[in-house]
Design a protein around this nucleic acid. Structure first.
Length: 418
RNA sequence: GUGGGUAUAGUUCAGCCUGGUUAGAAUGCCAGAUUGUGGCUCUGGAGGUCGUGGGUUCGAGUCCCACUACCCACCCCA
């Protein structure tokens, strides 16, 4: 075999790319409507950014990052998620000096995680995500969730549900961790090895474990929602009010904790259950400590990431209608040296007027040119042979009706516009 | 990191169990079916070192081993 694309990466081939462009178009349109502006940040960042931002105890940082030393001896990492880079960009460019909030989005942002690939999971995938900095109120969280749902709705994804939780803040989480640890301590031996290691550092993640025995142990555990401080409880309740107010159905799921350390208060996941595939299409939450953690001012943040590949996957599983790209308006079928050079100029003139015109670059016979025009979905074919050339005309054929008529060259553009 | 599956034309696959002449189909691609005309149909053509390496055998796409790649599940996540 010749060289293949690296494991866990995927090509988008010409006949598939319109689907991506369609999703991108919808996302852009919505972001504009919701007042978000696009940002683009580097694919590579200093490894340090993710150690501090994402958290050095997370799976992502511990075993999934593409990290290497560059030729100058700097430790560089291919971004494993979008938020840390956006936060860095926000800080580095002093955007906190502008009027807040700062509402941003990124589209088709490549992210890399060294995982074992499977359905809906790649080593390089692309995210659409939004970031809101400087907005402490729960309405900002709700706005993000609403935007994600609006996109999924527009795309036509079915069977999706919103799961929300609050994981508290530095004021209340330590107390909860203590409560959780004291509950778990009695049944410590029943936990899986991974969870035993989580016990001291991050007991919250034990709730997220999918092991049967750990789930059983967690059944009667106190939930974070019982231990939230007044501010967090109030925030969570406001979030629910905002969501209900805009008609977003949700489930409160105290077991959502998420795998990134920067979250505070709100966390959420949008889960799709389409025939044969169940998975998170969108995940996010609030990160009020992130900007400060990276050395900036104490400014809150909230946002989400949505996997484009997963979005497309569930869109197709839902039978969502993705409109085909516009086809060729007219194919100029020219035969013979003189006709070809005239035809090429003709195509150029039509394109200058916004008409999608195509031309033969292969040297095919008329018959083959017609076949090719048909494959391209050309609505009309303009025939330019010796006969037409001598009269200064083209014969314009409607491919659907088969009807043909002879018309002067200069009338072609006009005829095509009708 | 753990487990399962697969690897044969551009693509989707058959053939393998029960080794034996020139490895097939469908689809796609190219060409033709009288004079300059697509779709439908018919005919023909091109296209494969059967993932790589080793082994068994008179003989391996087929049996055995190793490697690699891909797919799927777990874990985790988008």
């Amino acid at each position: 075999m010749a060289i293949q694309a690296p494991k866990g990466t995927k090509d988008v081939i010409p006949k598939e790319s319109y689907k991506w462009q369609y999703l991108e178009g919808l996302a852009r349109e919505l972001c504009q409507l919701y007042g978000f502006r696009e940002v683009r940040t580097p694919v590579i960042e200093h490894t340090e950014l993710f150690l501090r931002g994402v958290g050095d105890t997370t799976d992502i940082v511990q075993k999934e990052m593409y990290t290497f030393d560059d030729r100058g001896g700097r430790s560089i990492t291919l971004k494993p998620e979008g938020t840390a880079g956006a936060a860095r960009m926000f800080l580095e460019n002093g955007l906190f000096n502008d009027a807040q909030p700062t509402k941003m989005y990124y589209l088709n942002c490549p992210v890399f995680r060294y995982d074992k690939p499977q359905a809906g999971r790649l080593r390089e995938h692309h995210q659409f995500g939004v970031e809101v900095y400087g907005a402490p109120l729960a309405s900002a969280d709700a706005e993000c969730i609403r935007l994600a749902m609006a996109l999924l709705g527009k795309v036509g994804v079915r069977h999706i549900s919103v799961h929300i939780n609050s994981i508290g803040c530095p004021n209340c989480r330590p107390a909860y961790n203590d409560a959780l640890r004291s509950y778990l301590r009695g049944r410590y031996g029943e936990l899986c090895d991974v969870c035993k290691s989580r016990f001291e550092k991050n007991p919250l993640r034990i709730l997220d474990c999918k092991e049967e025995r750990c789930r059983a142990v967690c059944q009667g555990a106190p939930t974070i929602l019982d231990c939230l401080c007044g501010e967090c409880a109030e925030h969570f309740s406001q979030l629910q009010g905002c969501l209900a107010g805009v008609g977003v159905q949700f489930k409160v799921d105290p077991y959502i904790v998420r795998g990134l350390d920067y979250y505070t208060k709100t966390v959420f996941e949008i889960i799709a259950e389409c025939q044969g595939y169940t998975g998170t299409v969108c995940g996010g939450g609030r990160y009020d400590g992130l900007i400060a953690e990276l050395g900036g001012p104490q400014l809150p943040g909230v946002g989400f990431g949505m996997g484009m590949e997963r979005l497309l996957l569930v869109a197709e599983l839902s039978g969502a209608a993705i409109p085909l790209p516009p086809s060729v308006d007219v194919y100029i079928a020219a035969l013979g040296e003189a006709a070809r050079s005239q035809g090429f100029a003709l195509v150029d003139g039509l394109r200058a007027q916004g008409i999608r015109a195509e031309f033969d670059h292969v040297g095919r016979s008329f018959k083959a040119q017609f076949k090719y025009a048909d494959k391209l979905g050309a609505r009309k074919v303009a025939i330019l042979g010796d006969d037409e050339l001598s009269k200064g005309c083209v014969k314009l054929k409607d491919m659907a009706s088969g009807e043909e008529r002879l018309l002067p060259l200069e009338e072609l553009a006009g005829a095509l516009k009708n």
